[in-house]
Design a binder for these strands. Structure first.
Ligand SMILES: Nc1nc2c(ncn2[C@H]2C[C@H](O)[C@@H](COP(=O)(O)OP(=O)(O)OP(=O)(O)O)O2)c(=O)[nH]1
Ligand SMILES: [Mg+2]
Ligand SMILES: [Mg+2]
Ligand SMILES: [Zn+2]
Length: 579
DNA sequence: GCCGTTTTCGGCCCGACTGTTTTCAGTCG
């Protein structure tokens, strides 16, 4: 996402917050939030788009398009500035307190002159003044006081890898109970999002066992406290601070419930609207006939999609990004799976910062059934990673060739490098050296805070080096830790398509770079992708699953992914990139 | 504010849990 997109999306989110507190029409607010989401997910810079292009976006109408153009031309949106004047500056921050919504914030502001977190804290010292307000009782005020301490946690997200491990534990624990017929994780985790806000767990069981199952859940070792708990749903906070939502549903509604709980919200809403337009109604319990209220489908997800006139939509696609119309037209992609991957093209050895020897690395790749493994250690600028200078690289190539010869007939071992893309787009090795490598992954590691336009030029320059095959982790982001660069991804993709080289989806769960939306834009433009684990340690090959999920979210088919090529096709492609 | 093989106006998903409510509003999933 380009810098401008980020700024405009933030403005729309801010406007939505203010409008909520001012009790504006809720559909107007939803529309504004949707516009923000659409702009955030866009691969290209909105400032390069015409008014007409903007209008073509789903969820962007005249009002939004005008505002975007206004921002691009003047650097601000007057309506935004006007709205900000309507309420105290510190007020929207109160919305981050769990359980506190716009209605209560407005009440606190109007009835108790609360204008910020600070003034709320002060007012809570004499709660009588607050509990006397109509609509606020002692319990609500106590809850606000308690939840103030979770304001930091609000909106916090976790890496897919970390959440996945936790979810597997909770699902296994729930399956321990004989009353539990089925248990699975759902939500953004099942959809394979790069980060998740919580862990959503669905359990199928006879409702009469609900109390026992709930008790078991809240008694599990990592659970610190219960947030809400009823007959069908319970939310807890773990000692680590992550929220776990449990939903209990009877086995005959498992399909409908899994669909609901997998989401996304936007996908659910679309499906429910579609059901209505077909004379049906969809909830987490069933798809029913609107008139007779008779159940049409509920047992499996496939049943429900079918009854809605849709092909089965894989969870990774359920984001309201066109999957429903594609499913209606039988045009969903045949998504890549881990079984389609036959090569690892980005891996390190102890020559730089890996923990494996060349021989161990090749052995692990062979065990996975791969036909090709590329040895791509760091280049000389990566001093902290023991990057190889020219003479060490020359020796390294010889060492790799020795293992290649040992492994002949088993696996193809490529001598390569992960060459650093320096801040100006030049590469860390000379072309005369690069041309002796079988494969070159070029990646940015430093100067990742540079502006979007500088980053765009930098990456394009690397793409246009005639010896490069793959751009590794193109933005350099580290999830929850580092934003990475924000180049205009459409420009990067265009350059990669012209050269016929691949952009990487780095599968490491801290990176997942390219991200899903950018990878999807790449595929739509006919750009090749690579899914690489960037292996440093023996277990790193297991990161592949996260890269696959990201690729599936990008609607990737095997033909889009160079790691899915046959050995011959891969060799041909590697050659085709070179002069 | 957006949108249209029923619509250019009048809709916009549906349900669980909590608190303050004697019948529902607010918040969240
Ligand atoms: N129909 C409907 N379903 C919703 C709504 N909000 C949430 N859901 C469903 C779809 C979500 O994927 C699922 C779990 O809710 P979460 O708030 O945990 O969202 P999700 O896991 O998608 O994202 P997250 O990473 O947790 O922020 O519940 C809603 O407003 N309407
Ligand atoms: Mg979730
Ligand atoms: Mg949840
Ligand atoms: Zn690497």
């Amino acid at each position: 996402m380009a810098d401008t997109n980020k700024q405009i999306a933030a403005i729309f989110d801010q406007m939505a917050d203010v409008l909520q507190i001012l009790d504006a029409n809720r559909f107007r607010i939803i529309a504004m939030q949707k516009a923000s989401r659409v702009i955030k997910e866009l691969p290209n810079d909105v400032s390069t788009m015409s008014h007409k292009d903007l209008l073509a976006l789903d969820g962007v109408g005249k009002g939004t398009a005008d505002k975007i153009v206004e921002f691009c031309e003047t650097g601000q949106i007057v309506e935004h500035k006007e709205l900000l004047k309507e309420i105290p500056k510190g007020l929207p921050a109160l919305l981050d307190i769990p359980g506190l919504g716009a209605k209560t914030v407005a009440l606190l502001w109007n009835e108790a002159n609360i204008v910020s977190i600070k003034s709320l804290e002060k007012a809570l010292k004499k709660p009588e003044t607050l509990t006397s307000i109509k609509g606020l009782g002692q319990k609500k005020i106590e809850a606000i006081a308690k939840n103030l301490s979770f304001i930091e946690q609000a909106g916090k997200r976790y890496t897919l890898g970390r959440a996945h491990l936790k979810a597997v534990y909770f699902v296994a624990q729930m399956r321990q109970l004989p009353e539990v017929a089925q248990a699975a994780f759902a939500g953004s985790l099942r959809r394979g999002r790069d980060t998740v806000g919580d862990i959503d767990i669905l359990v199928a069981a006879d409702p009469k066992h609900s109390a026992k199952i709930t008790k078991h859940f809240v008694s599990l070792e990592p659970v610190k406290e219960t947030i809400v708990s009823g007959k069908t749903k319970t939310s807890v906070r773990t000692k680590g601070g992550i929220q776990i939502d449990l939903r209990i549903i009877s086995p005959d509604a498992y399909g409908a419930a899994l669909m609901y709980f997998t989401g996304s919200k936007e996908h659910n809403v679309r499906l429910r609207e579609r059901a209505l337009s077909m004379g049906m109604s969809l909830s987490e319990y069933a798809l029913t006939n609107k008139k007779t209220e008779k159940v049409i489908a509920s047992e499996t997800e496939a049943d429900v999609y079918k009854a809605l006139g849709l092909d089965f939509i894989p969870p990774e696609l359920r984001e309201d990004r066109g999957e429903i119309s594609a499913a209606e037209a039988h045009k969903l992609p045949k998504l890549v799976t881990d079984r389609d991957i036959h090569a690892e093209l980005h891996a390190h050895t102890h020559a730089s910062d890996g923990l494996l020897s060349i021989r161990e690395l090749a052995g692990l790749a062979y065990d996975r059934g791969f036909h090709t493994i590329a040895v791509t250690d760091h280049s000389k600028s990566q001093v902290q990673a023991h990057g190889l200078d020219e003479s060490r690289l020359e020796q390294h190539i010889i060492d790799v060739h020795a293992v290649r010869d040992e492994m002949t007939g088993k696996i193809n071992v490529l001598a390569g490098a992960e060459v650093d893309i320096l801040s100006d787009g030049k590469l860390d090795y000379s072309n005369s050296l690069l041309k002796h490598l079988d494969i070159v992954v070029a990646s940015p590691h430093v100067a990742l805070a540079q502006t979007g336009s500088t980053a765009t030029k930098r990456i394009i320059k690397a793409i246009n080096n005639p010896y490069v095959h793959i751009i590794g982790h193109p933005t350099g982001r580290l999830l929850m830790r580092r934003e990475g660069m924000s180049p205009d991804m459409s420009e990067i993709i265009k350059a990669a398509v012209e050269r016929g080289i691949a952009l990487e989806i780095n599968a490491n769960h801290h990176r997942l770079d390219l991200r899903d939306t950018h990878a999807r834009a790449a595929i739509e433009a006919g750009c090749l992708l690579a899914i690489n684990t960037d292996t440093h340690r023996p277990n790193d090959f297991n990161e592949l699953q996260y890269g696959i999920l990201t690729a599936r979210r990008a609607w990737a088919e095997p033909k889009n992914i160079v790691n899915c090529f046959t050995e011959a096709k891969l060799q041909k492609w590697l050659k085709s990139c070179r002069p």
